[in-house]
Computed example of a mutant assay.
Amino acid sequence: MSLNNSSLSKLVGKQWLFKWKGFAGVFNSMVALQLLAIVFTWGGTGQSGTSMGNVSLSMSFYSTDTVVALTMGWAFFSAILITTKAYRNDDFLFVTNRLSSNLANMLFLVSASVVAGLTAIISQYAIQMIQYVQGHTFISSTAPLALGEWLTGASATILYVLFFGAIGYLIGCITQMHRTLVVIVPVVLIGLLFIFSSFVPDVFSFFRFYFQEHTFWLFMIKMVGTILLLFLASILVSNRQEVIK
């Protein structure tokens, strides 16, 4: 079998299917983290209370923010993990090259982000069910979401998870170029964050740019464009790695 007899799309598809089965263990950690996040929200993410005469009222607020945050962290570190040498050596089972391997990894990250994003959103129903079982009265702060609104929220969550996965993948590709970069890259990133936060007051506009966009389609363009740029940078770095080694 040679690359002449197998198209790039078929090769990427076979590698993606292999990675989907071979990397199944990362989903165990995802489920564990999401369950841990649900436990963290067991007593509520915020509380308030009031009283009038002999009547007192206590309210607890619940949110899936913790679940989503831990899911994004999971995507970041899982993306770094699949760039390590042990995982890259699995590609030798196929007639492959850097491009097909990267595309298969990116396709896996997209698929994993869809699964992770949907389970993170669905966790809100698990939180509600827990409160019902405990006998607590549950009152939603908003009207029931229409299907379109739910899909918008799910899509945004998936894009956030994929965004952090793409960042992790780029960092993983960079650190694989030389062992010392495993320490240097995180130190440089953290250092730059402190420097910019000290000397550039508007540094947090970065967070507003990605996390406070109110127009969904504009948000989607920003996220998809950034993710594509991150993946393109990963491919270029990976190709450079091949020349070095």
Rank of each mutant, 00 (worst) to 15 (best):
L57C: 02
S56T: 12
D91V: 09
G43L: 09
S56E: 10
S58M: 03
M59E: 03
A79D: 09
R88F: 02
F92A: 10
A79F: 07
G46I: 06
G53V: 06
T71R: 03
W74M: 02
M52H: 00
G44Q: 04
T84Y: 12
G73R: 05
M72W: 00
G46N: 14
G43W: 10
K85C: 01
D90N: 06
F92P: 06
L70R: 01
F92K: 08
N54F: 02
L70I: 06
T45H: 05
I82L: 15
T64S: 14
A75T: 13
D90C: 03
F92N: 12
G53S: 09
D91F: 15
L70W: 06
D91N: 15
M52I: 06
T71S: 12
S60I: 01
S56C: 00
F76N: 09
T45S: 14
T84G: 14
R88L: 03
M59A: 07
M59L: 14
L81K: 09
T50I: 01
N89S: 11
M52T: 02
T50Q: 01
M72L: 08
S51P: 08
M72D: 04
M72R: 12
T66K: 08
M59S: 04
N89V: 10
G49C: 01
S58D: 06
G53Q: 10
L93E: 04
T84M: 14
M52W: 03
A79V: 12
